[in-house]
Design a protein around this nucleic acid. Structure first.
Lengths: 206, 206
DNA sequence: TTGACAAGTATTCTTTTGTATAGTAATCAT
DNA sequence: ATGATTACTATACAAAAGAATACTTGTCAA
């Protein structure tokens, strides 16, 4: 992003504060009035801010400007799934226990959910009580961690699709890999890819 | 807050989604167009939503409506610290690169910050590029992971205070523990305790 | 010294937009 | 059965707001 002049900086600050306080963006005339200048001059400032990438304007629309999302502010409500009821839509309200507001930059993808980890099979990368962020997708690359639905139970495993069938392997050597023949593999449904882990370290024997 | 009718609920959902996507609220006419109804009818809906407390309208102003924040205070802006400049207050703006909105339930404590991990010394629990959440406190229990400031550099280590001095030990066996005599220990400052880890698993060789 | 950019004034024009009037029809509780 | 609320149509109007034209002044870099 290009650098702003002092004047442009104060105009941007005004727009940001206005949005924050009013819940809607200012009009060209409100910007002008705030600085005691003519509407035309305010248009120039907004055009400069747009040109430099700090906001977006919808031509012709009143208050049709939106700030380009800076780091703070934008949160996405991500559903936390408990027991996954197979058969029905994954993100149906029956599955959703609660939602957590997470920064948009952490949420990679359209359909995303959080899952509370129960087993030890992915230790030490993923431990019980961790929250994993899962992006819904029907297939994952070889060796990536996925949420698989086997017999109505969601499990975290690394996925290896091979000629001989499907292998689901945990990182924990205490767990033996699950092998499925091509015929059996139909019973295994990949729900999505694990794209993030959050671990609360407090109140945990470390 | 009073209950909404089905129709009012869908209108509110539209307004919320519009604000989310556009960055500015819709006009009365845009609401009307979205439902194929006349502007007057949209006015009625917005009036109902206002009356029931779901939004605020500024009479006469185009796009002069703002949603009443539904879950107020659900998120806390947590500062992300880059290089830590010793000597000055920890959360001074010089240190803060950006802030991230995190759910309040994750933020345990008053003074909390996030730190991007650089070294491998805490592997495999904490890896480079992880974000750790640190609660500011001058002392930690034996064996807990802390952020220590040694020679103006922030490092993550498990802390063992012993009669013979202070020991800072990483989980990674490739790193030799740092030992400080009681005299030397004065140069080591505990900034806080690591209370959480967030790891983005995407775009990372797993 | 010339052109690009910033930061303005003054005025005008045209859309966009909120709101009003005057109705209709259905539901629901008193 | 009556008023209150919901949910609309159709048309109209005045204010709000964006954008345009035509300028001026100052700074800065090539």
């Amino acid at each position: 992003m290009k650098l702003l002049t002092d004047r442009q900086q104060t105009v941007l600050a005004f727009v940001e504060e206005f949005c924050e306080r009013q819940g809607y963006p200012p009009t060209v005339r409100e910007v002008a009035a705030a600085f005691g200048i003519q509407p035309r001059a305010a248009v120039d400032h907004l055009a400069a801010l747009r040109r430099k990438g700090y906001l977006h304007r919808e031509p012709g629309l009143s208050r049709g400007l939106s700030l380009t999302p800076r780091s703070p502010g934008a949160v996405v409500e991500v559903p936390v799934l408990g027991r996954i009821a197979a058969g029905q839509p994954l993100l149906a309200s029956e599955n959703v226990e609660e939602t957590l507001p997470l920064p948009r930059s952490w949420v990679r993808g359209e359909e995303v959910f959080l899952l509370k980890v129960t087993g030890e099979s992915m230790a030490p990368v993923i431990l019980p009580d961790d929250l994993v962020m899962v992006r819904v997708q029907p297939r994952v690359a070889r060796g990536e961690i996925a949420v698989a639905l086997i017999d109505d139970e969601a499990t975290l495993k690394r996925v290896y699709e091979e000629a001989g069938g499907l292998v689901l392997k945990g990182d924990n050597p205490d767990f033996t890999p699950l092998r499925f023949s091509p015929a059996e593999a139909a019973d295994v449904q990949i729900l999505g890819k694990v794209v993030g882990v959050y671990r609360n370290l407090e109140g945990r024997r470390q």
